[in-house]
Design a protein around this nucleic acid. Structure first.
Length: 434
RNA sequence: CGGGCUGUAGUAUACCGGUAGUACAUACGAUUCGGGUUCGUAUAGACCGGGUUCGAUUCCCGGCAGCCCGACCA
């Protein structure tokens, strides 16, 4: 394959569908009941290895990478520094915080010499000793670090497809501050970051800032809950300001904590992200302190901020998917455009292939990521598979269209379908990027 | 972890205490070619272990796995 240019992700993300090693299926495996998993498995985005443990296949990985890149851009914009910490954790750090015994979702493993480890469910125990080596003065604060990493949680019951896994990809960010005031400021800034992230992922309208339990040392934590019937949580969305309250604290909090309104509606929802004031909960056991202007030792104040990438992907499918079709927002679609050639029969085959192949080359040169259905398959199958895969823009090349020098363009978001010239089409995709 | 249900070709399903059938997928041939065309041929299957029985994929017990409900879930 001639490599002409690279897609936005920095590698060649265009694809000939005939080369794709996965294939769409007509039926979902009987052990996938959740809509997100049924559609994603059928379309070849993911594969289940065991309950709550999935592989991301080429199409699905492209979506995950796009979610990741959106998060990365928004966090970098507020100064977050990306790193990558290990998943294999020594027992000792978990004993330091007492969570070796108290955290029941912790996977514990032993090596051949009986040494014990944990598989990381979250990384406070790792990041705090790490930053301790570099933080000594108030001048070193504040800062924040984050990573994208697989987390391991021994859920008693994995369920809902990729919405509750035992191994799952998460963005976790930790912020470090000299006092609660500074933490508060950053925390508020992160709320804006999260709003932009979910907005860019296409679920901004369905995703609500939600007040949730803050545990023993904080009045609230905040979750980002995406409304969909597939959700496991129940939230009460304020009719005036759209901020929600998690069912778990509704008894203590009847009026909207944001605007005081008592108008509200209960909804099922998926927690796609959360932010939490850790304060000194983890700085204390590890002795993470800094010297203030007077030379006094003070504990570092922390916050943590998570987003489940698989959950975002699953939530998007739940929100936009129908029985036989997904529909990706432009920002997350594995490819920008789905190009279908309907070769028909006889002498037209070559001309259709030539036109479609040409368009593919031109778009690729222009940096547009295309999934090109060059398979030797019938129209019905191609249309059905394209619906299932759910790339929001579809363009068809067929014998009839080639004869008229036209293309058929479908926008799955607006439902608009039109016959256009090649020039109009290229203008659509190489200038006026949606 | 408690309760319920289920394990049959790659996928979805059927029947049966006595040679396991169908559809889709796959391979080959023909036909068709803008919404999963039609036909033929071929390939391919009973989760594992134990028990009952002349004989178990079927019945019983145990294990393992999966799904659903609940509990759990920074």
């Amino acid at each position: 394959m001639l490599i002409v240019s690279y897609g936005v992700l920095g590698y060649d993300d265009r694809m000939l569908q005939s080369q794709l090693f996965t294939k769409p299926r007509k039926e979902a495996p009987k052990d996938e009941v959740a809509k997100n998993a049924a559609l994603l498995v059928r379309a070849g985005f993911i594969d289940k290895l065991q309950a709550g443990v999935y592989s991301y296949l080429p199409l699905g990985l492209l979506v995950i990478k796009k979610i990741e890149q959106i998060i990365r851009e928004e966090i970098n914009a507020v100064g977050g520094q990306e790193l990558l910490m290990p998943a294999l954790h020594p027992k000792e750090v978990w004993q330091t915080t007492g969570r070796w015994d108290s955290l029941d979702v912790l996977y514990k493993i032993k090596d051949a010499s009986d040494r014990e480890f944990a598989l990381g469910p979250t990384h406070e125990e790792i990041v705090v000793p790490l930053v301790k080596q570099f933080v000594s003065s108030y001048k070193d604060l504040p800062f924040s670090v984050y990573q994208f990493q697989n987390k391991f949680r021994m859920e008693l019951r994995a369920k809902s497809g990729i919405l509750r896994g035992r191994e799952f990809l998460m963005k976790d960010l930790y912020s470090f501050h000299r006092d609660e005031e500074d933490l508060k400021q950053f925390y508020e800034k992160m709320k804006g970051v999260y709003v932009r992230i979910f907005e860019r992922c296409g679920i901004g309208a369905e995703t609500h800032l939600t007040f949730a339990s803050g545990g023993s040392f904080s009045q609230y934590s905040h979750e980002y809950q995406t409304v969909t019937p597939a959700g496991e949580d129940i939230i009460y969305v304020c009719g005036d300001c759209g901020v929600a309250i998690n069912d778990e604290i509704i008894a203590k909090q009847s009026a909207c904590p944001a605007c005081g309104s008592t108008k509200r509606k209960s909804e099922r929802s998926i927690e796609v992200g959360n932010i939490f004031e850790l304060k000194t909960k983890f700085s204390d056991p590890f002795g993470l302190t800094y010297k203030d202007e007077k030379g006094d030792d003070k504990p570092v104040v922390m916050g943590c901020y998570g987003i489940g990438l698989g959950r975002v992907m699953g939530a998007v499918v739940e929100v936009f998917g129908t029985e036989n079709a997904m529909r990706w927002p432009d920002s997350l679609s594995p490819h920008r455009l789905h190009l279908l050639e309907l070769t028909g029969k006889g002498s037209a085959v070559d001309s259709v292939r030539k036109v479609a192949g040409d368009i593919y080359q031109k778009l690729t040169k222009a940096g547009v990521s295309v999934l090109y259905d060059d398979r030797n398959a019938r129209a019905g199958e191609k249309f059905a598979d394209a619906d299932l895969i759910g790339i929001p823009h579809r363009v068809v090349v067929s014998e009839k269209l080639v004869a008229d020098n036209k293309l058929e363009y479908l926008n799955r978001v607006t439902g608009e379908k039109k016959i256009i010239s090649e020039i109009e089409f290229f203008r659509l995709f190489t200038n006026d990027m949606v």
